[in-house]
Nucleic acid binder design. Structure first.
Length: 203
DNA sequence: ACCGGGATGTTCT
DNA sequence: GAACATCCCGGTG
């Protein structure tokens, strides 16, 4: 592990199918809380029927059409926020949904924000859970993750992505379900859903 | 373990 | 009016 350094914009200005697995291991920090990305999904702009950008620009999704490195936060199901890292060239509306984090710092505060989490592994193992744990809301939509805009930043602490990440279909969608555009850290207990049968690790 | 339903409100058709 | 990139709780086995 090195001193954490913000990501370089050119590294994000690529296809989300490349950026998504590359983001595994990077560290997202906000307000004293931080976590390591262990699960992501790629959303591929206007050609992707499951993307919010399908059908063109709108009030809600306009951040997706901005430059790589912006944070796209949306509100859904009347109560949840989810966070994406915008990638690709400006106008592509490509993005990567952050689906799970391994908590690293500010864990006490995460527990306070998420009383329903009975184990630390449940603090950030879902796209809306991690936003609740870190206090990410729509107010952070459009923040630049590479300059710590509004206090939120995405950094590299020297942890390499896994050489063979797990890959499978995206979850929670009803259209374009056939693409295997979800990646996760193999063996991590902090990914969503993964519940190794019969075993429980002490948290 | 698995399944079903409710919460709750913005966005889009 | 329907859909929604979700989560939590309670039922059953």
């Amino acid at each position: 592990m090195n001193a954490p350094a913000p990501l370089e914009r050119f590294a994000l200005a690529r296809d989300p199918l490349d950026v998504a697995p590359w983001l595994l291991g990077k560290v997202l920090s906000y307000g004293g809380c931080s976590g390591r990305i262990v699960e992501v999904e790629a959303y591929r702009g206007a050609d992707d029927a499951a993307s919010h950008a399908f059908g063109g620009q709108s009030t809600r999704n306009q951040t997706m059409f901005g430059r790589a490195g912006l944070l796209y936060v949306y509100f859904t199901y009347g109560m949840h926020y989810c966070a994406n890292v915008v990638c690709g060239e400006e106008g592509t509306a490509w993005a990567v949904l952050v689906r799970a984090l391994e908590p690293l710092a500010g864990i006490d505060e995460m527990r306070r924000r998420r009383p329903a989490a009975h184990h630390d592994r449940d603090l950030c193992n879902g796209p809306a859970k991690l936003c609740e744990a870190l206090g990410i809301t729509r107010e952070l939509d459009g923040a630049d993750l590479l300059t710590a805009d509004r206090g939120i930043v995405l950094e590299d602490d020297g942890t390499s992505p896994p050489s063979e990440p797990h890959c499978g279909p995206r979850v929670g969608i009803t259209k374009a379900v056939e693409h295997p555009w979800r990646w996760s850290w193999p063996g991590s207990t902090f990914v969503s859903r993964a519940r190794p049968a019969g075993r429980s690790s002490p948290n």
